[in-house]
Simulated assay, not measured.
Amino acid sequence: MKEPSRTGNHPFYLSSRMHYLRENFIHPPFDYEHELMEAIRFGDENRAMDMLRKINELEAAVLATYPLRSKKNALIASCTLFTRAIIKGGVDPEIAFHLSDTLILEIEKMSDVERLVHFEYEMLVQFVSMIRSEKEEVSYSHIVNLAIYYIREHIFEELTLQRVAKYLNVHPSYLSDRFKRETGVSITTFMNRRKIEESKHLLTHTNQSISEIAFTFKFCSQSYYTQLFKNFTGMTPRKFRISGTAR
């Protein structure tokens, strides 16, 4: 009976390994990767950035024939690792995977290697921001956390205090008082602020018109969306889109 060949003896593996050694391509040390994942898991943006820079200073392995495809594959791999890190840190898997899917779609749209290099750091910031947001909510009561979760999951729908209260099977006044007491803001303000934050991604990464974005988030009009955006950020959506803040 023929003995199964080991991976190390496979001709393609050997030739590929020899090529990597000749070209000085090495995968990042495992302790670098582990420290990066731990930094993300604990929401430590500075440490995570430092580790990602250290990893990127190493000569990267070629993951495809063409440089653009190779870089995209590398970012998708990073996105997968970052997703696992925030899930390990306590983020709901469905929310984590939704962020991952969104970012991978953005990666696939890009056609410039230099833009992809910068996007990896932007991607890291988004994952750290999500883990920080999740940790902030840990101190809230179960009912308030459920309300926040519902708002996040239905961010593209028309949200009202009454609708959230009905879902949670509590009186609107009770939910309103409890939410304001624990978070420091009204539930309506929280909903609007969350929608504005989510809309920044569309302003940054899509060509959707401002009126289309306002409609996507179920604001009653473009002017109302613009006013809210300015209230929360200090600038209009149009100025945000063309400014360095959106890049």
Rank of each mutant, 00 (worst) to 15 (best):
M1W: 05
E3I: 12
P4Y: 00
R6W: 14
T7Q: 12
N9Y: 04
F12Y: 05
S15N: 13
Y20G: 10
E23Y: 02
F25S: 07
I26Y: 13
P28W: 05
P29H: 07
Y32H: 09
H34C: 07
R41P: 11
F42P: 01
D44Y: 08
M49I: 14
D50V: 06
N56E: 07
A60D: 11
A61M: 06
A61K: 09
V62C: 07
V62I: 12
A64W: 02
A64Y: 01
S70G: 03
K72W: 07
N73W: 03
L75F: 02
I76L: 04
A77T: 09
S78V: 08
C79D: 14
T80H: 07
T83P: 00
T83Q: 00
T83E: 03
I87K: 07
K88N: 15
I95W: 01
A96T: 02
L99R: 03
S100R: 15
D101Q: 06
E106F: 05
I107G: 06
K109V: 12
M110I: 00
D112W: 01
E114G: 03
E120A: 07
Y121G: 03
Y121S: 05
E122V: 02
Q126F: 04
S129W: 02
S129F: 04
M130C: 11
S133M: 10
K135P: 12
S139M: 08
Y140F: 14
H142S: 11
I143D: 04
V144N: 01
A147L: 00
Y149I: 13
Y150V: 08
E157V: 00
R163G: 09
L168I: 11
H171C: 02
K180N: 15
T188F: 10
T188Q: 10
N192L: 10
N192P: 00
I196N: 09
I196H: 12
I196W: 13
H201L: 04
L203D: 04
T204P: 11
H205V: 07
T206S: 11
N207I: 05
S209V: 02
S209T: 12
I210W: 01
I210K: 02
I210D: 08
I213M: 03
I213T: 07
F215P: 12
T216Y: 10
K218A: 13
K218D: 02
C220I: 11
C220W: 12
T226M: 10
F229Y: 10
K230T: 08
F232K: 02
T233Y: 08
M235T: 06
P237K: 09
R238T: 15
K239V: 10
K239S: 08
I242M: 12
R247T: 13
R247K: 13
R247L: 14
